[in-house]
Design a binder for these strands. Sequence first.
DNA 1: TTGTACGCGTTATCAT
DNA 2: ATGATAACGCGTACAA
Lengths: 373, 373
Amino acid sequence: MRKRARKNCTRVHKTNYWLLRAGFYPWLSAKIGAMNDDQTIDPGVVIADDVAEAAGVSRWTVGRAFRKDAPISAKTRKRVLAAAAQLGYVPDLAAAGLASDRSGLIALLVNDFANPHTLVVLERLSLILQNEGWGSLLVPMRDESGAPDALLTASQRRVDAAVLNGTWFDDQIIKTALGARRVKKLIVFARTSENPNTISISCDDVGALRDIVAFAFEKGYRRPLFVAGPDSHSATVRRKDTFLQEWHRRSGAHAPFIHVEQYNIGLAHARVLAALTGPYQDRRPDILICENDALAIGAIDAIRYGLGLSVPGDIGVIGYDDMPLAALPCYNLTTWHQPITDMANALVEVLRQTSEPSRDQLFPGRFIQRGSA
Amino acid sequence: MRKRARKNCTRVHKTNYWLLRAGFYPWLSAKIGAMNDDQTIDPGVVIADDVAEAAGVSRWTVGRAFRKDAPISAKTRKRVLAAAAQLGYVPDLAAAGLASDRSGLIALLVNDFANPHTLVVLERLSLILQNEGWGSLLVPMRDESGAPDALLTASQRRVDAAVLNGTWFDDQIIKTALGARRVKKLIVFARTSENPNTISISCDDVGALRDIVAFAFEKGYRRPLFVAGPDSHSATVRRKDTFLQEWHRRSGAHAPFIHVEQYNIGLAHARVLAALTGPYQDRRPDILICENDALAIGAIDAIRYGLGLSVPGDIGVIGYDDMPLAALPCYNLTTWHQPITDMANALVEVLRQTSEPSRDQLFPGRFIQRGSA
DNA sequence: TTGTACGCGTTATCAT
DNA sequence: ATGATAACGCGTACAA
């Protein structure tokens, strides 16, 4: 009964939209310039048919004029674009997505709104996606149980890919994502993932923690405490394990660690304070190695305002991320810089590719020595 | 030639999607639970026709079953939903948007990524929109010239509304937005706008600054300096002008002010330091009233680490926003709390309405006294 | 309450 | 290089 010509669409789409920047649509600015304050431009939408009629070509030729690498003569294209400019035509991406199975939408799944670093990631990703002609669907996840909702949203909007920006994605969430309908690609950003069906783009945190351990050891620190994020997630384990191994290799001793349930500055404050006034009261660490900057900032606050001690005088602190907050003189955090822009560029490259890319792309970061250690 | 039955669609849409939460789609969880790690669910997409066939009804009845207030018998709906559940059907919102002229997408236009408060706004808005069945299109604007690009993106995606979250939107940008095709509603969030074609949802900053002035004056401060954001934008003027008026009314004196070109912590640091070591060296203020928290944080850093003075001992600082950073013990900023959640709820209400809402909704905030003044 | 014709604006595919 | 046919998946209006 039901007819469906295009099943299992695995065609390669080589024709991408171009001319997607407003700079290429001078008629927009012209119209706006001529407007009065209380005046709205006639919202009567111009469609490809109108342009076709005006240019004396068919609707399909209009579409070709707006796509790269389309078989169309330069002369015809010029005429079509001129007609489009005069009428104020802009292609409708929603309709294009419906027809082509490529929505041009990328879902950014975010659960880590308490971490200021998230804002940096959102800025970089959305800007670079916009430059490349993609739209960003911001999909928040309140907590772990919010993941199915988020992925449902993404799949209902036919996104071309979903990017996991969170920190506590566990394997169950990734399985949910892969199971969601119409989510074609799943990319784990700024985290590693062991799942073979994902593509992860992240900073080389193994190398990073080796460098961090080297720095701390050579600076003479001997009583470290590792401050890790939520337990039970494979992503966390990597930095922690690398640290523990490296420290043992260098010092012969086993370093202790604590876990904080969320990457939340206030919570880190509380947990670090509890640790230093409780189990670690009599064996106070001389350096806190933190899994990321949010934990490190909380740790500094705990040391200074909870214990009345000094950083780095009494206890040093090292973070990871180099978020803007880390550079403020109040914290002046020694940390590890992730090359977010490079990683975002790599993400775009992965999105462009139709073939299976190599998984687990690692990018080197760099150590940022400031005043906290 | 061209036929268009539905011109100027001003119909009232009373039927909204329901059952949009994943909790209502138990088959998703079931399928996922049964999966192996390296297995992907058959992405063969189930459409309404399939469900119709399985339930023995027409395709249109399937659509009705998924909408509220649709004329359908409870029995039929139950049968349809059962069939949908078995097949794993989920409505396609992209196609629905194309057909109905309501995409269910809201564009969040953001230009203020240097301000940590933006993350709070994004979290609240995207969560509440998701709960109500809307999707959030995150549209970044690098600078003022990026506004046309951003609005083009929004209009090409047929958003139902565009929400301006930025801080330096001037009237030209708003005109651009209103001129953009297919952007039906324009809402200015957390800022006021004088433009009669917009709806602004904001905190009552006139009342807020009255309270702030009252506090500062009664605390005995007598030499204020107002630290404002970018000049030339009407949004900025309101807090500044209110402050200046109120201070004059109370003290009989005219208070001075400076401008910072962006709401950026580092830049505020530099500008405040320059002011205090330059023009204001010999008439040092005893209190800095800042237009928002980002400026206030920069001011505190400048006072403490640039001048070596103490806050609040030598100079007090008051902010506005109550962003999470303000509560950290390092800054402990006295500020004004904006009721973002209430404002987000009001936004949803405006989005729901088809009639013209009253413009300029104001919400009361509250003074948060901490240690910086 | 249910079914049908038509349209939404575009693209894939094929024929010319 | 261009035009034509047939989707894409669903909603609206109206008839039954």
